[in-house]
């Protein structure tokens, strides 16, 4: 009973990665990777132009 209560408390207060938060992270990741890819593409283009 003791280990189980501690386990529940940790999940309740320390595990903040909910379904909602995960969906937000996926959106942010997609955006970040798109920007990075666009920047890389721009860099390559700049190098080619030189």
């Amino acid at each position: 009973m003791i280990l189980l209560v501690v386990s529940a408390l940790i999940y309740q207060f320390k595990v903040t990665l909910s379904e909602k938060k995960h969906a937000e992270i996926v959106k942010k990741l997609e955006k970040r990777i798109k920007t990075e890819n666009a920047e890389k593409a721009a860099d390559t283009k700049a190098e080619l132009d030189n």
Partner: peptide, 16 residues
């Protein structure tokens, strides 16, 4: 850190 907290919680749960 989320994996670690979940891991700790799940270890206690599984052990129990």
């Amino acid at each position: 850190d989320q994996l670690m907290w979940l891991g700790l919680s799940y270890l206690l749960f599984a052990l129990s």
